[in-house]
Design a protein around this nucleic acid. Structure first.
Length: 214
DNA sequence: TTAGGGTTAAGT
DNA sequence: ACTTAACCCTAA
């Protein structure tokens, strides 16, 4: 199928070709397409992107308050922060033994809830991540089911996985690279973040501002 | 089916 | 120790 070949070629270029965000304009389309200031900062400086995005949020605060939860605004404006977690066992934790006893998914309780234990991690490869960036560029955010069919049909990744991974990528792109923070983006994500940070942030920013707006 | 909160495995 | 990434849960 021609479309698939086109996609494969584009993905190949994204992986190996020169970093080129010249088509960012096209990717963004609509709202920001004639915002030259935004386009310029997107293409040059990520710090400027953040302040610019912040300004957009400030300028549109009234409209945003109507449809954005506070937590969502905070998440959008601030780098992601995880809550503190309690200490836990590591390495050969009780989970390993529980698995041997009860299978790969046993049920466990935390707080007042019972939930299934987590299945083992399937770490995303660079190729997969690039493919995800490409497919979100094409389809936009939120079409996870369709993206699964069109781009990940033979993959172990479900629509929910795609959605979750995109969220993690956005968070990784928002992570500040200050010296204060010991841990930054993990090795596996480094390439994708370095290469597609502008694109990912831009797509996300556009999505947040455009969707739900009446 | 998706969005977004919550939990747990794994990286640094 | 503390963060990120993968996965779970569930309302709408």
């Amino acid at each position: 199928m021609a479309q698939k070949e086109d996609d494969d070629l584009e993905i190949q270029l994204l992986m190996t070709g020169p970093a080129n965000e010249a088509n960012l304009d096209e990717i963004l389309g609509g709202t920001f397409s004639n915002d030259t200031l935004l386009r310029n900062v997107l293409l040059t400086n990520t710090d400027a992107v953040e302040s610019r995005v912040e300004k957009i949020v400030t300028d549109h605060q009234h409209e945003m308050e109507d449809y954005l939860e506070l937590s969502m605004r905070d998440c959008f404006l601030a780098p992601w922060r995880c809550g503190q977690r309690g200490t836990r066992l590591r390495g050969r934790s009780w989970g390993v033994e529980a698995r041997q006893l009860f299978g790969s998914q046993y049920s466990c309780t935390s707080g007042d809830r019972t939930r299934r234990s987590r299945k083992n991690n399937a770490r995303w490869t660079e190729d997969e991540m690039v493919k995800l960036v490409h497919s979100v560029s094409k389809k936009g955010i939120g079409k996870w089911g369709k993206m699964k069919d069109d781009y990940f049909s033979a993959s172990i990744r479900t629509a929910v996985h795609l959605k979750d991974k995109w969220r993690n990528l956005v968070r990784a792109c928002k992570a500040k690279n200050t010296t204060k923070k010991k841990v930054k983006v993990q090795k596996a994500t480094e390439f994708v973040v370095r290469r597609f940070r502008h694109r990912i942030l831009a797509i996300e920013a556009k999505h947040i501002l455009v969707t739900k707006k009446t």
